[in-house]
């Protein structure tokens, strides 16, 4: 059924304006599509959604397509854009998509980026690597509060420049307390200051994430490699996860995010740094677009003092494993049982 609808739109591009595509559909194509549709009956969720789509489509598409097919005045790109947006609106939760569906949605998003912004981006749908569970360590003795990490994060993840969105929060601390609540997050002077030290927070990618079970639509979940991700197209923007996070790690797009075109990072991931829209949640993803290709997150790479360490905690020879097993590490708010994969340590 779904293929039938999308074929309808594709067909629309090629047929001449005088013909009405709805009634001139080739019989063989329909039969083939129906066969494909029959195979898809096994996937119940797909069928129900496409049924809803079909219902609305039959009602609306009949009238609109006749009008559209009859007029050659509407831009070809606009038609394609409308078709892509239609498909995108009715797609399901990425969490339960098949590989083909993931590939399809990524392709559509790339196309939309090209049409809307004249920007050629490459959006990947890399799956988690086998045998990998990501962990992060932060050396409090080394951090000088420079903020190179924040700058790199903003550029890497295409964060909204207008609201100065930052996934990373840096605290200037007085000696005597390790509690970030007592720190100052609004410092803006020469760093490091003599009598202060610096602690950074971001999404801790908990093993027991409190933000995951609270989502009513299941738009946020923990991937197999330990990264807690958000499907930006599935999030309804209720902000319950933002209330549930004990580390203030989640960010909401209160307005449409603005990223200067020339600064947009074109290497994107569906669950990572692709363009978001207003009304959806986002957060640090351990740079999923980089880490699933073997690179370090932007913050780790940018830190000039080497205060940030990243790796696979399942690898007994990794740096992060050494730190967890040999250094005196602690995590924030351990008593909440969230099991964050972000450890702090000191020399």
């Amino acid at each position: 059924m779904r293929n039938f609808i999308s074929n309808l739109f594709k067909h629309n591009k090629k047929t001449s304006s005088s013909q009405c595509p709805v009634f001139s559909q080739d019989k063989t194509t329909t039969r083939v599509d129906e066969e494909k549709g029959a195979k898809q009956i096994l996937d119940k969720k797909q069928n129900r959604r496409s049924f809803l789509k079909g219902m609305t489509a039959t009602a609306g598409a009949g009238a609109s397509l006749m009008a559209v097919g009859a007029s050659n005045l509407i831009d070809k790109d606009a038609k394609e854009k409308a078709a892509l947006k239609w498909e995108e609106f009715f797609k399901g939760n990425y969490r339960v998509m098949t590989e083909d569906e993931k590939k399809a949605t990524v392709k559509r998003l790339e196309e939309l980026s090209r049409i809307n912004n004249n920007q050629n981006v490459s959006i990947s749908a890399d799956a988690p690597l086998e045998g990998v569970l990501f962990g992060y360590a932060f050396n409090i003795s080394k951090c000088q509060g420079y903020g190179d990490c924040i700058e790199a994060c903003i550029e890497e993840n295409n964060l909204d420049r207008k609201s100065n969105m930052q996934y990373i929060k840096m605290f200037e601390m007085d000696h005597g307390k390790l509690n970030v609540e007592s720190g100052d997050a609004a410092y803006f002077h020469q760093v490091p200051k003599d009598d202060k030290f610096y602690i950074g927070t971001q999404c801790m990618h908990c093993e027991n994430p409190p933000c995951v079970p609270v989502c009513p639509t299941g738009a946020t979940w923990k991937e197999k490699d330990g990264i807690v991700v958000v499907d930006y197209d599935w999030c309804i923007g209720c902000r319950y996860c933002e209330a549930a996070c004990p580390y203030w790690a989640r960010r909401f797009n209160w307005a449409e995010p603005e990223v200067p075109k020339e600064k947009e990072n074109k290497n994107q991931h569906y669950l990572g740094n692709r363009k978001k829209m207003k009304g959806v949640m986002e957060k640090c993803t351990f740079c999923v677009q980089r880490t699933r290709k073997g690179q370090e997150p932007a913050c780790v790479e940018a830190c000039p003092t080497g205060a940030r360490v990243f790796g696979n905690i399942l690898d007994p020879n990794s740096e992060i494993r050494y730190i967890i097993e040999n250094k005196k590490v602690f995590r924030l708010k351990e008593e909440l049982g969230t099991e964050p994969k972000f450890w702090y340590y000191m020399d």
Binding site: G147, M165, K169, A185, A186, Q190, V191
Partner: peptide, 15 residues
């Protein structure tokens, strides 16, 4: 290590 200004203005500063 040297002293410098932070690379970005903190988001919290506006509040």
């Amino acid at each position: 290590f040297h002293n410098q200004m932070p690379k970005v203005t903190p988001n919290f500063l506006k509040y």
